[in-house]
Amino acid sequence: MMPLQLLATSPVNLNHRGHYLHWGVIQISVANLVVISLMLLLFAAALLLPFPKGRASR
């Protein structure tokens, strides 16, 4: 088996029925919720984390 073919068998198996959350009319898969939460987290981090100071231009 080639190394890349080994990579095709993933250590985390997501090929099982997904988990879904329900709040009234809202239904969302845990996977989508994780993705959206990570995006919001990244956005907040991008706003709040200090940006390294570059050199002032000459």
């Binding site: 956005f43 981090a45 991008a46 706003l47 984390l49 940006f51 100071k53 570059g54």
Partner: peptide, 8 residues
Amino acid sequence: VASWIYVF
């Protein structure tokens, strides 16, 4: 231009 938001 000094915020991580600019890298997106």
